[in-house]
Design a binder for these strands. Structure first.
Lengths: 224, 224
DNA sequence: TTCAAAACTTGATTCGAGTCAAGAAATAAT
DNA sequence: ATTATTTCTTGACTCGAATCAAGTTTTGAA
């Protein structure tokens, strides 16, 4: 992928869509493409940040691992989404690791390049603030559901959310394997499996691998 | 409190410490003082944001309440700290309520005033980004400890943290009542009480109401 | 200063979800 | 196509923390 293709990808990204070609070119000069095969690490917890990332293809899992080796998935990044912004503005290292779950292509937008743009473009500033704020909101929601909902409510909430985001709300596709989904929902795989069985038996969903058919949205929303 | 006193408070706040007097004055014109007695609500979940807040005196509890009435405290704001920034940059309402736990004085820095400054001052932009990013980091830490640590580890982590932030690390003061501390740590008050008793019995801490003497820091860090 | 309300503690018991184990199904590698 | 490996499911059992209950202490309001 050459510079002009990188520039094209950058200008197609929401945060930079208002920038002039000359500014995009500047940004592209401070951006590099990173190719990582499935299962590879983009960075580890504790690594210093050299910039922030824009996922072009594949999928990235952000997570933490306890001293006992237990893993918790904090977020799942899809193509077109950026991540790692927040670390840039603190003199700190990454609090999470980033690992691909599919062969992936990522743009690394270096610190210097983005700081330069931020100093000169009000729109990018706003959108950067909005991006970090949105992540913030998501984290608050996650804390709320971990703290105040039981396993069934968390799964239902998650299914309804991905259903709402889907073009075909009755038939959704889990975006990752069930181990990862379980970890995002703060469940063990065993519990996820059992809760899905309960919802199936209640006639609310049908599960075929990663495909979930929501047969009764209202029932799902009001379950228990 | 008149305009010049508000201006003085604003210029003493880290985020605005580099601003010129003329800019501070502009900001002060878009700022108002809010006085709220102990137990009062500054805003509720779902309220539209008119700006962000700087706590001058007192204490503010940020939290959520489940449909079943269970409460979860997400954050505790101390004098000199700001909050509510993230909501400003999303076209959304507050995901949490804000309630005083002491008689409090708060500055409300209105949307228009801060946006105006953000468009004209690079330092404030950086510090705003840093402030929201720091909150982000805290939230990730919270999710990590809720997800991967047991009740004892969470309390120990919390005590070590407030001890590290304290001028007198051996003798710390809980910043709120135990019900609030318990909720922040995702514990019931009963469990908090029992865990404190266990740590006391193990000779690691001494508890006298809100005052905790950490008699054995290393032991506390390596407990279990 | 008194007293009512709120906060905290302690004990007994329950329960949701985790753990351990073993097998089935799906996926990837050869 | 076959096999190895990973992922997923199901069952039996355990356990950490919640709940329920009752008493004590602290706090703040009249």
């Amino acid at each position: 992928m050459d510079k002009s293709q990188i520039a094209q990808k950058l200008s197609g990204f929401y945060m930079f869509s208002e920038l002039q070609p000359s500014q995009i070119e500047l940004l592209a000069n401070g951006t590099r493409l990173v190719d990582i095969p499935r299962g590879g690490r983009l960075f580890n917890r504790g690594d210093k940040a050299h910039g922030f990332y824009l996922l072009l293809e594949g999928q990235i899992k952000l997570g933490v691992i306890s001293p006992q080796g237990d893993e918790k998935v904090i977020g799942l990044i899809q193509p077109g989404e950026s991540f790692g912004e927040a670390v840039l503005f603190l003199e700190r290292s990454f609090p999470v690791y980033a690992q691909t779950t599919l062969d992936s292509k990522v743009l690394l937008i270096t610190r210097e390049a983005i700081f330069d743009i931020l100093d000169n473009d009000v729109t990018v500033v706003r959108r950067m603030l909005a991006a970090i704020s949105a992540r913030n909101r998501q984290l608050v929601n996650d804390i709320e559901s971990i703290s105040l909902q039981n396993s069934t409510q968390r799964l239902i909430g998650y299914l309804l959310q991905i259903s709402a985001d889907s073009p075909n709300p009755e038939r959704v596709q889990l975006p990752a394997n069930k181990l990862t989904i379980a970890s995002m929902l703060n469940l063990t795989p065993e519990t996820l499996s059992r809760v899905m069985l309960r919802l199936s038996n209640a006639g609310l969903i049908e599960v075929n691998g990663k495909e979930i058919v929501i047969t009764n949205v209202a029932g799902l929303r009001n379950f228990e």
